[in-house]
Design a protein around this nucleic acid. Structure first.
Lengths: 197, 197, 197, 197
DNA sequence: TATGAATGAGGGTTCATTCAT
DNA sequence: AATGAATGAACCCTCATTCAT
């Protein structure tokens, strides 16, 4: 009973995520979602009173939990030499949630309430966690002392460039190997810059 | 005649850009565009056969010319010590075209034809230009030798973080002064990394 | 078995009557009816093949029997001096069935079949009964001789004004006492008119 | 320009009135209204943002003006012997607006806001006017002294009985002549009651 | 007998687009 | 060139009804 219910709800969410990330929120029809999920249109509304509620459900703590959990483990790594592995790991995780992130970021621009809902989760929490990590390094003297939030945002921006690379401006022959190289460079530049020492 | 025509067309484009960046493409009504531009509903369609054509026109060569022109002047700068000032300058310019960029990046995800139009312009061209600049530095030995395209993308990502900061995850009290600090750090990290030398 | 069945059926009818009178026929959902009756959605349709059948059932003979029975006893009263008490009594009874009457009158306008069903019951029967009473008074010389049906309808109209008062155009401070006064006046005017004798 | 616009709006109102009175408010489709008015469905919404707004427009001062104007002239009549003619006249007017009244009364039951909207017009105003007339007669000693509002409501109820006769419980062979007789009796009973003097 | 998940036709509403003026 | 009334397809959503359990 609860089994079936959860399944249906989840199937709709899966279908919606897939379609939203392909065609955007307003570009996706509730009818399409239903069809993709294998239901009749009306069924969608048994589980979500509103189309927008599907979007919100996609971004709810539950859905973002994965991202958060991953980020939480960050500060446990101590050795500076491990930063690369960590970031790599994170980026892979992010890449796996690429569709979700894409939808969330796109729609967050236009729905004020949605933006708040989401960024009380990702925003404050995740950024805060990473910033705490930064701060610790600065206290230790490993990093220069700058606004840890700024440092965090810049690092996130570098990660973003990878998403951009994979979604907007694809690079030719961007295989797994090149991807590794890309990650290496992000870490390297973040730590040591592009200039020769 | 051609004068008036161009004006009307441009007024519609301006109105559309403003509205698209606020409410997204599908969130904006042709009626709203007409009103914002000071015309009646039907008039819009004298200049653009389709709503989508307005979007495409926004990404047309001469519309993006400003961005391109700015980027073009990059390689003319020789002294490494000037990079900071240059990038700063670029970032400010980009920020001024924030609306256009926002619209282009957001909508490019969902309109295949649009994506092509745009990335034959900005994408290839701009990235290529900056990459050429990177390459030169690497040959000179100022920068380490890495894939110049990767370096470029990472730098762009760092710039993106600023857009994100201003659009999605606003920082408290992010005044003009803090903004300058932010830019400084982007440059600094890109050149020297976050670690102490 | 028949016991339980009747109960369920009646519970649904009761729920429907209550909801119909509050929100109208089309304004009421079968789901709401089910919930109000304490059943699940589908159960309603075990007793009534159609939503409309609930409405029709509300007007069925034994549902309206109460009203009819009350009216039937009218002619047994002989003394003219008792008319007031009688009418008063009737009006109170009618007021108690206000919900049913309201639903019937409202919906009868729009459902042909329903209208027939109802007015072969209340209409003809009740009006006829009261008209018979009128006729008797006229023969006795107590009432002037006019079309007894017309007299009946006018009396009913006066009663209606009370329903209107309570449903559409509420009077301020219309407490029980004022209500009595209102009834008194209906009787008085019907018997003696508003002019001074 | 203004000519056409007004026409379209009015045609939609006419169509809506006709359909609402036949099938009720919720029983009528915006598509039907459009078709009946000779337009496409979307056109309806150029003139009325909402289906409900059509209903409200039907009841707006404009539409009720006729009734009000007629009622306003009531107190100018002095001779008691004229009451009959006056009422007759009113009833005819009401009969002409039968469709409108039917819709208004039916829907007023279920839409609180609508009820208020309407009865600030008809209710207070019209009833008040007639009540004023009653009061004057009572002061003059022609009528007994009772609550003039109650007297008014009862009179209105008697009028209502005619509407009921024509809409719910039709009388056989109810021709124009019989109608006259009916009106005569309303007046007579209201003034002198049904009992013999 | 009772459930409640699923259905899908149909309703109100929006809006890009057309066209007579 | 400009208007804005008109269009109608398509959208989101509701709800009476069905049916497997």
């Amino acid at each position: 009973m609860s089994e079936t219910k959860k399944d249906s709800r989840q199937m709709i969410l899966d279908a919606a995520l897939s379609l939203f990330s392909q065609k955007g929120f307003s570009g996706t029809t509730t009818k399409e979602i239903a069809k993709e999920a294998g239901f009749a249109e009306g069924t969608v509304f048994r589980y979500f009173p509103t189309k927008k509620d599907i979007l919100i459900a996609l971004a709810e703590p539950h859905a973002v939990a994965g991202l958060k959990r991953v980020m939480n483990s960050l500060p446990n790594q101590d050795e500076e030499s491990n930063l690369r592995a960590i970031l790599e790991n994170r980026l892979v995780t992010i890449a796996q949630n690429k569709d979700l992130l894409k939808v969330i970021f796109t729609e967050a621009q236009y729905h004020e309430d949605f933006r708040k809902e989401v960024f009380d989760n990702i925003g404050t929490h995740v950024l805060g966690t990473v910033a705490g990590y930064m701060e610790k390094r600065m206290e230790t003297g490993i990093f220069r002392s700058i606004d840890p939030i700024v440092a965090t945002r810049i690092l996130v921006g570098m990660m973003l460039s990878l998403l951009v690379t994979e979604n907007f401006l694809p690079m030719k022959d961007f295989d797994q190997e090149k991807r590794q190289g890309y990650l290496d460079e992000i870490v390297h530049i973040f730590l040591y810059g592009l200039t020769k020492r």
